[in-house]
Amino acid sequence: MQIYVCVKHVPDSAAYIRIIDNRHIDENITFLLNPYDEHALTEAVRVRDMHPGSEVIAVCLGKEDAEKTIRSAMAMGADRGILILTETGHDSIETALILKTAIEEDGVPGLIFTGKESIDDQGMQTLFRLGALFDFPVVTNVARLEILAEKALADAEFSGGVVKTYEMSLPCVIGAGKGLNTPKYPTVRDVMRSRKSPVKTLLLPDLKIPPAQARMEVVELIPHLQKRQPVEISGTDSDIAQKIVQILKDEAKVI
């Protein structure tokens, strides 16, 4: 079985984001593998190891620097990588089309994994579009996955402690949530090995992606600083508790 994992090269969550020309960010910061994709990879590797003869392929649409993220994916166990080289950003609609085309060009997906969202664009939709293009079922925020002979069972987490178990036909698309597993840090040996694993580079124009009927475009980026002006609440523990209740009542008006 060929298991594809779509990975994204995103700014480090701790990086300071500087906006240039009101629409783009200064990309002179550390980029790395999207955190949710680590869970996707970990699960893909687990499934591969239970199905002899399977391989895990990390697919990434990104700029040249994104090869680092593919290398990280291979250090976490992916057998090989595909980098679809681009110079610009793409919305989720285009991204899904490109990923689909690249996957189809490469092989026959038995399973496709993604993270449930990317921490930069926070779009939460590429996986659903990918599923629709392939006509595969999709479940997001998956916390437990079981691959059976002809179907998959996936537990999806909802707020308020609700868990829904979905049954899907195969192939399917899985959006990994954090509850799915605990990714392991790659060892030095893993990293060394990943340097030698093959990465295929595709050029976007060669994929001949048709134009989409809809488009989402960032027209403005604004820093979200929202500096608050802290006021101290002091006194004994019971004074503090009383003041907090007072604030909830009189100022916030929530009780």
């Binding site: 960010i25 921490i119 930069d120 027209v219 820093p223 979200h224």
Partner: peptide, 13 residues
């Protein structure tokens, strides 16, 4: 966007 570090205006077509 960017984990809440920026606000974004998105034009949809």
């Amino acid at each position: 966007r960017y984990s809440g570090k920026t606000l974004a205006k998105i034009k949809v077509r």
